[in-house]
């Protein structure tokens, strides 16, 4: 996985409300300018946190990305997030 590219998308989305809105309304159009494989785009579009973390995306960025798209912090959000990662090992996150 192109960790840098995937990390950059998530960073751009959670830090900027307009980007988050654009990503939510049309993920394909939003992701088009980024240098991503189809699989990377799919993982981001599907908000597939398991695939993202498995591929070496920075877990903190994945969390912030998912949190931003979920609309706010809650225990329920955290439980669902962790449930999606069950059994994974966090490996190398170097970009």
């Amino acid at each position: 996985m192109n960790r840098y590219g995937v990390n950059k998308v998530m960073y751009d989305v959670y830090r900027d409300n307009d980007n988050a809105t654009a990503f939510t309304s049309d993920p394909s159009a939003y992701l088009a300018p980024y240098d991503l494989t189809d699989e990377e785009s799919k993982a981001l579009t599907n908000r597939d946190v398991r695939r993202l973390v498995e591929g070496g995306a920075h877990p903190f960025l994945v969390f912030n990305f998912a949190l931003c798209l979920a609309g706010g912090f809650s225990i329920e959000f955290c439980l669902e997030y962790v449930n999606n990662l069950r059994g994974l090992d966090v490996g190398d996150i170097t970009t």
Binding site: V53, P59, F60, V62, F63, N64, C78, V82, L85, D89
Partner: peptide, 9 residues
């Protein structure tokens, strides 16, 4: 600390 990872909670 494991924020964002499977051991987060």
């Amino acid at each position: 600390n494991n924020i964002g990872g499977p051991e987060m909670l």
